[in-house]
Computed example of a mutant assay.
Amino acid sequence: MIASHDGDEPRTYSEAITSSAKELWIKAIDEEMKSMRSNHVWDLVDLPAYRKAIGNKWVLRVKRKAYDIIERYKACLLAKGYNQQEGIDYEETFSLVVMFTSIRLILAIVAHMDLELHQMDVKTTFLNGELEEEIYMEQPDGYIINDQERKVCKLKKSIYGLKQSSKQWYLRFLNL
C-alpha cells in the first residue's frame, strides 16, 4: 500500500519522471519494459525505406483500493494504432463481445449451485498474440537505446493499441 503521494496521473513520460512520485512511476514503467523484454515483444532493427514506424504512448494510472487508498502505480505502453494503414499494417480487426445474457446465466448458475466466482486480470494479455504483419514502432520514451537512436522496434507480438491485437489474442488461445 502506498500513501506518501497524492496519486496524480501524469499524461506523459516527461510528466511522470518530473513528478513528486517519480520513483514510483519509474518502477511501474520499468516493470512494463521488463514484461516486454521477457515476452520478446520486439527486435530493434533499421526501418525499411518503404515503411513508416507508428508511434507509442505511455499510459500511466494510479490503481486504487477501497476508500481511495493507492494500491499501486501502473504503466502501460500503447502503440498508436490509429496511425496503422489497412492492407499494410493489418488486414482485419476482430473483437470478442460478450452478451449480457451469457453473464446473467453464469451468475445465475453460480448463485443456484452456491459456487464461488472469481475475476482475474491477465497482466500481459495481448503480449500472447503473435503478429502476422510487419509492424514497426518507434522506441518508447525513456528507453531509447544509446547509439541506436535511429532504430525502431519491429513488433513480433501484439501490444495494446494495435488494430489487430484482439484478433491475435483470440487466435492464440483458439489454437492452444
Results as ranks from 00 to 15, higher is better:
residue 102 S to T: 08
residue 10 P to L: 11
residue 38 S to N: 13
residue 12 T to Y: 09
residue 51 R to V: 04
residue 76 C to I: 08
residue 41 V to K: 01
residue 100 F to L: 06
residue 170 Y to P: 00
residue 134 E to I: 04
residue 132 E to Y: 00
residue 148 Q to F: 09
residue 123 K to Y: 12
residue 30 D to I: 00
residue 87 G to Y: 01
residue 72 R to K: 15
residue 7 G to S: 11
residue 161 G to L: 09
residue 175 N to F: 00
residue 166 S to A: 14
residue 45 V to R: 07
residue 53 A to Q: 12
residue 1 M to F: 05
residue 101 T to E: 14
residue 127 L to K: 02
residue 167 K to H: 05
residue 13 Y to M: 05
residue 110 V to F: 04
residue 154 K to H: 10
residue 142 G to C: 03
residue 6 D to P: 10
residue 80 K to H: 09
residue 135 I to K: 00
residue 31 E to G: 05
residue 131 L to Q: 10
residue 169 W to S: 01
residue 28 A to C: 07
residue 138 E to L: 11
residue 72 R to H: 12
residue 153 C to W: 12
residue 41 V to S: 04
residue 147 D to M: 08
residue 43 D to F: 03
residue 84 Q to E: 06
residue 123 K to R: 14
residue 173 F to C: 01
residue 172 R to T: 08
residue 121 D to S: 03
residue 61 R to F: 02
residue 51 R to G: 00
residue 95 S to W: 00
residue 27 K to G: 05
residue 167 K to Y: 05
residue 174 L to N: 12
residue 176 L to T: 12
residue 170 Y to G: 00
residue 13 Y to F: 15
residue 93 T to K: 04
residue 38 S to F: 07
residue 74 K to G: 12
residue 149 E to Y: 07
residue 83 N to L: 09
residue 149 E to A: 11
residue 16 A to K: 06
residue 7 G to D: 07
residue 150 R to P: 08
residue 12 T to Q: 11
residue 64 R to M: 06
residue 43 D to H: 11
residue 126 F to N: 03
residue 70 I to V: 14
residue 173 F to M: 13
residue 144 I to M: 15
residue 99 M to S: 09
residue 139 Q to K: 06
residue 140 P to M: 01
residue 18 T to W: 09
residue 31 E to N: 10
residue 170 Y to V: 01
residue 156 K to T: 02
residue 58 W to F: 07
residue 15 E to H: 12
residue 138 E to P: 02
residue 20 S to K: 15
residue 72 R to L: 07
residue 52 K to N: 08
residue 39 N to T: 04
residue 71 E to M: 02
residue 93 T to E: 06
residue 94 F to T: 08
residue 125 T to R: 06
residue 21 A to T: 06
residue 20 S to F: 08
residue 104 R to T: 04
residue 4 S to H: 08
residue 45 V to C: 04
residue 146 N to Q: 14
residue 13 Y to P: 11
residue 38 S to R: 13
residue 110 V to R: 02
residue 148 Q to L: 12
residue 175 N to Y: 02
residue 71 E to K: 13
residue 150 R to A: 15
residue 158 S to N: 03
residue 10 P to H: 13
residue 140 P to W: 00
residue 81 G to N: 02
residue 125 T to V: 14
residue 118 H to M: 13
residue 15 E to M: 07
residue 2 I to S: 07
residue 157 K to N: 03
residue 96 L to Y: 05
residue 109 I to Q: 05
residue 46 D to Y: 02
residue 61 R to A: 06
residue 50 Y to W: 06
residue 165 S to Q: 06
residue 23 E to I: 00
residue 42 W to T: 03
residue 38 S to A: 07
residue 11 R to Q: 15
residue 5 H to N: 10
residue 127 L to T: 01
residue 109 I to R: 10
residue 99 M to C: 05
residue 83 N to E: 15
residue 151 K to M: 13
residue 42 W to H: 09
residue 143 Y to K: 04
residue 32 E to S: 01
residue 44 L to Q: 12
residue 113 M to L: 13
residue 175 N to D: 13
residue 158 S to W: 08
residue 96 L to P: 02
residue 22 K to N: 15
residue 111 A to F: 09
residue 37 R to H: 12
residue 68 D to H: 09
residue 157 K to D: 04
residue 126 F to I: 05
residue 29 I to L: 02
residue 145 I to C: 05
residue 33 M to W: 14
residue 4 S to V: 07
residue 37 R to I: 11
residue 169 W to T: 03
residue 13 Y to C: 09
residue 52 K to C: 01
residue 168 Q to L: 11
residue 56 N to M: 01
residue 78 L to Y: 15
